[in-house]
Design a protein around this nucleic acid. Structure first.
Lengths: 354, 354
DNA sequence: AGCGTCTTCGGAAACGTTTACGCTCGCGCG
DNA sequence: CGCGCGAGCGTAAACGTTTCCGAAGACGCT
């Protein structure tokens, strides 16, 4: 590994000049800069991030903390993956790399639990992305600190902490309106995990739209789920066994929608004939489910990109206000909702557009 | 941010002693150690990874490079996500964090493309995980270097580079044997992307087992796909339009299997009645597909964990041979293959076990 | 009593950068 | 001709650690 000193010796200048030349400082003549750059190329010089971070107090790394544990969705959920690719592109474009906090060894030197804030300080990350948790006190400390943070799908805030979310309310309303336009009056929902903000928001959006449309709100048409397919299955069984079962269902996630379809099939109820179903997310496999899923697409990749971009701004400009952004959702009409006119063609068309 | 020096001053010892105390060196008395540790707790001391890395030449970070680009699966594929959670747990248990190379800014200081090897050296990662590529020259350079590396799903090797893969051959054979045991003689396959090792291996396994069972190998029963569902759809249409169409299909990925089912449905061929289908992967949503997918499970999470563990060993012990491991695959019988005896119960049972 | 050894600690160098400060030119201007 | 100024460069301090080397004392042995 060649160092800046070796470059200095071999080119007959001081280390300071080499550093300036490589960093594009204007205080060095064009001639010597070229000489030094050429030498650096030749010797395959690579600067040491550690040394640079140590003195400049900038690491060009942003941390990603996603709360993990038995109760937490972890990064197994397709949602995180999609957000992650957006994040990668977003931070990458700004010259940052991503650090995934994984180490389970105590903070360092001595025992004690591994606080996320400590990990962040330890690595000297320039900012952090917060994902997949619900009021974890550790995360709260991080959000309350002076480290630039952006939460994805949680309405955390702090002096330097913002958030990015999908328009969950509006999306849920979209779904309800769609079902209503198809003639349904008895519309039920299986909710997401209500301790999470998106879960709660989608339920709110559902209720608001039901009311706005003048439909009769019924408590028994709201059953609580947890985003995973098993809860969709159980919830739907419960709904279909009511005396007056719903004719349409809004499931707060595609996975629950898949569970719902399975439940309906088992009870001999056709989808969309006996029960029209709309999901939420538009995960990659939504179109593989039979019947193909009508769903509310949230652009998870965009979520990641927006978060990254907002975080970047906060890092560059210490005066910048924390980002607070909602990204739009969009109804994708496929088969499961029973849209009458040539659903297949319509679905294809809307995919072409994309 | 408190430093080791402040701890030294306030506790009346030298920095050397503080360092030793916090690192568990035996050269410090128990009394002073306790005093220092207590002080560190109180002042919320966090060591600087940058400084530590600089001098000790160990970063306790492992890099993750996944080749990205138009032609590459990128991290959008569910496969990577699952591997990633295994990786996270695996490296975390050994005290490492994960660095996802994202930055699109040129190496540093001067222009030139961002070599992965350079990035790795720049950050001083202790090792690297290689994923999702096929003979990329940049990756090859990395594998040829002296940096400990483990490739996932590619048979790279080098002085300090090993690999971890699923038993793709055996898995494919499992699928063929299962279909044969159900009475099928005309068994076809839609392959994965043959430039990748798993794609090629699954095809090999298919062919070997066909031969071993004494079935007639037919070239027109092998159609090339790319792991994604669209290719499964097209390939299956092609197969079903043959004069003598197959009665059973091995798709080299679950997504292609889903595409195959869609194609069969469109042509009025029932699954599993008209065409028995077996997939590969057992992605999380395989059981959401209708009919539920019989598939060869590869334990992607284990893949990540094994890779992490192997990498850790190579890092700790510079004499250690590069890890070369195949992790077992397993047939998961659900509905799509038309297994006769109570397929539903069997499927549930095998999920309970999990 | 002298000597070696072990324990516990401090001093200081080193890791590879960035950057504040200061120096030396050459040049233009009065 | 002298003065000031800017461009270009070097010196050295700093960043926060780890670790080598050595020193001082305690202690046991001959």
């Amino acid at each position: 590994m060649t160092t800046i000193q070796q470059l200095a010796e071999q080119s007959g200048v001081s280390v300071a000049t080499v550093s300036r030349a490589l960093n594009g400082s204007s205080e060095v003549s064009e001639a010597t800069r070229e000489r030094i750059v050429a030498l650096a190329q030749e010797l395959d010089y690579t600067p040491s991030a550690a040394a640079r971070t140590l003195v400049s107090r900038r690491s060009h790394v942003v941390g990603v903390v996603l709360e993990t544990g038995p109760d937490h969705p972890d990064l197994k959920h397709p949602f995180f993956q999609e957000v992650l690719v957006g994040l990668k592109h977003g931070v990458g474009a700004q010259g940052y790399d991503l650090l995934l906090f994984a180490s389970e060894r105590p903070g360092n030197g001595f025992g004690g639990t591994h606080s996320y804030l400590r990990r962040a300080e330890h690595h000297g990350v320039d900012g952090a992305i917060l994902m997949g948790f619900d009021g974890d006190p550790e995360i709260a400390r991080l959000a309350a600190s002076s480290l630039p943070c952006v939460a994805v799908d949680a309405d955390l805030d702090g002096p330097r902490t913002g958030y990015v979310m999908s328009e969950n309310r509006e999306g849920a309303a979209l779904a309800v309106r769609h079902l209503h336009e198809l003639g349904h009056e008895r519309i039920a929902t299986v909710t997401g995990w209500l301790r999470t903000k998106p879960g709660a928001d989608r339920l709110d959006g559902f209720r608001e739209e039901v009311e706005r449309l003048g439909l009769e709100p019924r408590d028994e048409y709201v059953v609580e789920g947890d985003f995973y397919d098993e809860s969709g299955y159980r919830g739907t069984r419960q709904l279909l066994e009511l005396d007056e079962p719903p004719t349409a269902l809004f499931a707060a996630s595609d996975q629950m929608a898949a569970g719902a379809i399975r439940a309906a099939n088992e009870l001999g109820v056709g989808v969309p004939g006996g029960l029209a179903v709309v999901g939420f997310d538009d995960i990659a496999l939504a179109s593989l489910i039979q019947p193909q899923l009508t769903t509310v697409r949230q652009n998870m990749q965009a979520l990641g990109e927006v978060a990254a971009e907002g975080l970047g701004r906060m890092i560059e400009d210490s005066e910048a206000a924390p980002v607070r952004r909602l990204v739009p959702t969009e109804l994708i009409v496929r088969v499961s909702s029973g849209a009458t006119e040539a659903p297949r063609a319509k679905a294809l068309e809307s995919e072409e557009v994309d």
